[in-house]
């Protein structure tokens, strides 16, 4: 079995260096992945499936991940020589930058023909999370993505072009939101607990502005 670097190099040789990037995984599992450019993704997927050395004929898992816009605060330390001739000062400058979010589709590929025990992971990323959320569907390559891509469309809102039947799958058709996104707010209907606490209590208070004396039960202390 080739290493992921070798696979990356072969893809880069065939489809151009911009088509693939290696994403490293710092955790102990060390399952690194390949980030594919979406314009070439379906051809690369076909290549991965049909290449005699790889034969990744089994797409086990396809899933979405939501990466919302993130504000990153970077602290940079610079040494400034003192104009008066004293010791150099260390100046910390904080820069805020907005890392734009994206939606990501992750596919775990295995080879049934070669019985590979470790997955080859490929990822595709949309341009942003709001208006440019299309990715090429890999269902024409692996049938197993059919329902899973529908699920990603339903829960994350990634639109797969070339999917044969892209409809909502888990939620009903009239549903408007994509509930697995991190910024989804669920309907306000579970705060009616008799004894709420924590954040549920805060939400309950919003529904009952001021608890009147009759509903407030103060446990009596009898000695």
């Amino acid at each position: 079995m080739e290493t992921l670097e070798q696979i990356r190099d072969r893809i880069a040789a065939q489809f151009g260096a911009g088509a693939v990037t290696l994403v490293t995984n710092p955790g102990p599992a060390a399952q690194h992945s390949l980030l594919l450019a979406s314009h070439a993704a379906r051809d690369i997927a076909r290549f991965l499936r049909d290449d005699p050395g790889l034969r990744l004929d089994f797409c086990s898992n396809a899933t979405g991940v939501d990466w919302p816009d993130k504000e990153i605060v970077e602290t940079t330390k610079t040494t400034q020589p003192d104009p008066a001739g004293g010791p150099a000062k260390v100046v910390e400058t904080k820069t805020k930058r907005l890392q734009p979010g994206c939606l990501e589709a992750v596919y775990h590929l295995y080879s049934m023909a070669l019985k590979s025990p470790a997955p080859v992971i490929i990822r595709l990323r949309t341009v942003n999370r709001t208006d440019d959320v299309t990715l090429p569907s890999l269902t024409p390559v692996w049938r197993s993505c059919e329902f899973q891509e529908r699920e990603i469309y339903d829960l994350y809102g990634i639109v797969f072009t070339g999917h044969p039947d892209l409809r909502r799958i888990l939620m009903w058709d009239e549903f408007k939101d994509h509930p697995m996104r991190k910024d989804y707010v669920s309907p306000d209907d579970y705060e009616w607990e008799p004894t709420p606490h924590d954040d549920v209590l805060e939400r309950a208070k919003a529904h009952y502005p001021a608890p009147s004396a009759s509903t407030t039960q103060t446990p009596e202390v009898t000695k």
């Binding site: 995984n25 710092p26 955790g27 102990p28 599992a29 399952q31 086990s60 775990h108 992971i121």
Partner: peptide, 10 residues
């Protein structure tokens, strides 16, 4: 609290 990273176990 596992270290940042990802894993697929099957």
């Amino acid at each position: 609290r596992p270290k940042a990273g990802e894993a697929y176990g099957r």
